[in-house]
């Protein structure tokens, strides 16, 4: 029995195992960040990454500097920043949904140049530019 327990305890996690675990969680978050199309899904993935980063601070504190608590303080800061980020992110998504009716990041292309995004590079076509300027003016000149 004692031998069994000793053989189990031989697999006790060291610093490298802990860091590997947080790397795996961070990579999963990165995958979600790259594949999700819904903005809220991207926010979820970012939360996962922030969480693994905060865990890293505590791991280094525990293994490399066990007499101090700086890692814990940094983790608290990371948690506070994550809270602020979620508040602003949620506000932006709600405002975005109200105006656009969607939070699909593939359709958030308003800042793309309308001259070049539809028909290729026609930016030097004077007629097209004048037309766009006219539309812009009639939209904003009240």
């Amino acid at each position: 029995m004692n031998q069994l327990l000793a053989s189990i305890a031989a697999y006790a996690p060291g610093l490298r195992e802990w860091l590997l675990l947080t790397s795996v969680i961070f990579s999963i978050g990165l995958y979600g960040l790259l594949t999700r199309r819904n903005a809220v899904g991207i926010l979820l993935a970012v939360e996962l990454m922030l969480n693994s980063a905060a865990l890293n601070f505590v791991i280094f504190n525990r293994f490399c500097m066990p007499a101090r608590i700086d890692g814990s303080v940094m983790a608290i800061f990371v948690i506070a920043v994550a809270a602020a980020e979620v508040v602003v992110g949620m506000a932006i998504f709600v405002a975005l949904y109200r105006y656009r009716g969607t939070v699909d990041v593939n359709r958030m292309d308003t800042m793309k140049d309308p001259v070049t995004s539809f028909e290729g590079p026609v930016a030097f076509n004077k007629e097209v530019l004048d037309n766009i300027n006219k539309q812009y003016k009639s939209h904003h000149d009240h």
């Binding site: 809220v40 926010l43 979620v86 992110g89 949620m90 998504f93 709600v94 975005l96 939070v103």
Partner: peptide, 15 residues
Amino acid sequence: GIVVLIVFAIMLTRS
């Protein structure tokens, strides 16, 4: 806190 906010975001954007 944060998960509840995210659930709010999901509901408010009907995601």
